[in-house]
Design a binder for these strands. Structure first.
Lengths: 255, 255
DNA sequence: TAGTGGTCTAGACCACCCG
DNA sequence: GGGTGGTCTAGACCACTAG
């Protein structure tokens, strides 16, 4: 088996040499990618089991007749991808499969609406400087009564409200925030245009619609709502918090 | 500015040489990481703007007095991380910041419960072979009446139901699925132990609790529920679908 | 044709782990 | 001390893009 693979690889090497005479035959992939596939094949075929040790770089260099840097790059990338686990001075092992890490990718509201072939619009209900209430001050880690920007936007699909955005933004970092017209640019886009490396954290919950939600979302009946609480940071500095309310409808997918 | 950085880097080089005399002074990082930081600093300070071209590998080699492989590794990793965009024959550019891609990372239920310091347990209500109903057959892309494994589990935190798992699993791929004791092993862990490369897709929605949910989740009042519909694949082959119901409570965060 | 990024090599030094 | 992975170099050949 190993011998067979060695042969295959030396054949590939020949093809590469042929290819260098500018006679592209069948697009041989880079060697490091072949090594990655070689390792993946052994894992998928169960020949190399989870947690077991795979050949060292030195052994793969000998087996596949490549330089150590090429082998190393392949193994390093597989390690970055979570397939392998490497321990200096010990060896390279098959990593345990990731378990239970469930990732949801929620597109922004405008892309989501337009991707459904619908018309996107929004109405900015408030966009002003407010003194902080005691409750909000607690959440934001600020003092009661301090000034903060508050923005309240209803996002619509074909004119029908689909999402309520209730946002607090700290004035220190982005003083021109309050002058923006958020019917023209999404708040997230504005942040992305001003700050190079944003990060977010999120908290997901469900709640029944309140009177306030009924009013702005044009609802008649009590409706379960998905509530996404998002904080936006630039490095370790909090920029903004948002409560995003999606009244009871399927709204997100992928990955 | 550039000169200053070159100086800083040659100083680091000296430190590295000192360090090689086994006198670790202040843990100098690998050169390629210094290059990454060098680039990131220029981006964060706005010195290099979005979409603008940054110095070529050759220029960075001269500026920072490093080998091209080291420069190349730094720029390649930043490209993989989405910070840069490289075009062969043209140059290296600052990538546009990712916008609106909101990612939620939901831990598995057992880790979630235990991470809160609570006691995890579960009850398997059904675990049997069922003929497919017309509606479920449609969702799964199978024929009505075909046999399928159905598993119905109530997950509990300190004895109180917190999540309902209603799962259909195709019998072809994992014939010993039906013999598992899912009070001992999470279904996701079982899949991970049998299939090397799993992927999932998800759909999120909210719904009001039904009579069925009231009964199994020990609810008295109608409650909004978060419903996560998850499909599990091995390559392009569907393994299992699950409806995961979390009655109205905060349940997930991070990233 | 000159400059760019993509890949690959052969060799080197290092920190780390283990017997 | 011998084997492992982590890093780095100097040089090479290539495909690609643009003037």
């Amino acid at each position: 088996m190993c011998e067979q693979l060695t042969l295959r690889n030396s054949e590939m090497h020949k093809k590469k040499l042929q290819n260098s005479k500018s006679i592209p035959i069948d697009d041989p992939k880079p060697l490091y990618q072949q090594v990655k596939k070689h390792v993946m094949d052994h894992i998928q075929s169960r020949e190399w089991e989870v947690h077991s040790r795979i050949p060292s770089e030195h052994e793969l260099v000998a087996e596949l007749s490549m330089s150590r840097m090429t082998i190393h790059r392949a193994l390093r990338e597989l390690t970055q991808e979570g397939v392998l686990k490497r321990i200096q001075g010990v060896g390279t092992f098959i990593a345990a499969p990731k378990q239970g890490a469930t990732v949801l990718n929620i597109p922004n509201i405008k892309d989501y609406v337009t991707s459904r072939g619908s018309n996107y619009s929004c109405v900015v209900q408030f966009h002003q400087t407010d003194p902080l209430s005691a409750k909000d001050a607690l959440t934001l880690g600020l003092k009661e009564g301090e000034d903060i920007y508050r923005t309240y936007i209803i996002h619509k699909e074909n004119g029908i409200p689909v999402m309520l955005e209730d946002r607090f933004t700290l004035p220190d970092m982005l003083p021109d925030y309050i002058n923006q017209d958020f019917t023209k640019i999404l708040v997230d886009y504005f942040f992305a245009s001003r700050c190079a490396f944003l990060n977010h954290d999120h908290q997901l919950s469900v709640q029944m619609s309140t009177q306030e939600i009924h009013h702005f979302m044009e609802l008649d009946l009590p409706t379960p709502c998905l509530c996404l609480y998002r904080r936006t940071w630039s490095g370790n500095t909090l920029l903004s918090t948002a409560r995003l309310l999606y009244p009871g409808q399927k709204f997100a997918l992928t990955c």
